[in-house]
């Protein structure tokens, strides 16, 4: 019989890895829920991808940090940096993408995109032949190439919701993020979608996505642990002593009493 020890600390230790495997099971169940979410007309149009593993998650976190510094508007800089920290503290990331919004609109004239009773707002602004949108030009001037069909994009909300619901029902903390999705999409995760959302998931005693202090990218636990490693190494070199032959405590009053 096997003994599986589980403990969340230290990160990526065998005990933590065993826990991460449990979370991966939930990630897969979340994808099932996502794909069975109620959609406009029940039309399929979403894809999912799970990112798992230290290096794989690190790549996503780094792209989020690049976006924070180089691309997104200033007001998003700190949220993106903070969420990169959260990504590193996650056990897995579930990516959900909408394949239709940018390429195959609902064509129903709902009014959401441009407030008109037809789909002219979108079709007048994208490259298409007789209503067949040519999405092969993937160059972008904005983070997301718009306009997109809004009622198709609306569907993505249900997909996210059902995935999040499953995470919650399994007592796994989860947070859906624009930042994670954008970074993942730039790395060709859910590559058939223009609009991608990343759901960070983690099983931890403390929800890693709540109670965020200021400048979290500099003050998070990983930084603090590293600081302990950095400072303790120096500090121990001051009160050092030849412990084989000498105990400085012996010279104190308390030490003498202990000896008696």
């Amino acid at each position: 019989m096997a003994r599986i020890h589980i403990d969340e600390f230290p990160p990526y230790s065998p005990s933590d890895q065993a826990k991460k495997e449990n979370v991966l099971v939930v990630a897969k169940l979340m994808v099932n829920a996502a794909l069975t979410a109620p959609l406009t007309g029940g039309v399929p149009g979403h894809e999912a991808e799970i990112v798992y593993g230290q290096k794989e998650i690190e790549q996503v976190a780094r792209e989020m940090e690049r976006l924070a510094h180089k691309e997104v508007p200033k007001r998003l800089k700190k949220p993106f940096l903070y969420e990169a920290v959260m990504a590193r503290e996650s056990d897995a990331i579930v990516f959900l993408g909408n394949k239709r919004a940018h390429e195959t609109p609902m064509d129903v004239g709902c009014g959401l995109c441009g407030g008109e009773p037809d789909c002219s707002f979108v079709y007048n602004r994208v490259n298409h032949f007789n209503g067949l949108i040519d999405a092969t030009d993937r160059s972008r001037e904005t983070a997301i190439k718009g306009p997109v069909c809004v009622i198709r994009a609306h569907d993505l909300g249900y997909v996210i919701g059902s995935a999040m619901w499953i995470a919650g029902n399994h007592f796994v903390d989860a947070k859906s993020c624009y930042s994670v999705g954008l970074a993942g999409r730039n790395l060709d995760i859910c590559m058939n979608s223009e609009i991608v959302v990343g759901i960070l998931i983690a099983a931890a005693s403390k929800n890693p996505y709540a109670d965020i202090p200021p400048n979290y990218h500099l003050t998070n636990m990983a930084k603090q642990i590293d600081a302990v490693r950095k400072i303790t190494t120096i500090t121990r070199q001051i009160p050092n002593h030849p412990y084989h032959t000498f105990d400085p405590e012996k010279k104190t009053e308390a030490g003498k009493k202990k000896e008696e």
Binding site: G114, P117, I151, H154, W165
Partner: peptide, 29 residues
């Protein structure tokens, strides 16, 4: 340019529309 289509007003912030989907999904769930 705010106007109405067959059943919604627009234009719309795409991310708000996504979020509104999640909200409705939670009600369905």
């Amino acid at each position: 340019n705010k106007g109405v289509g067959i059943g919604c007003y627009g234009p719309t912030c795409v991310w708000k529309a996504v979020d509104f989907g999640t909200v409705c999904d939670y009600a369905c769930a």
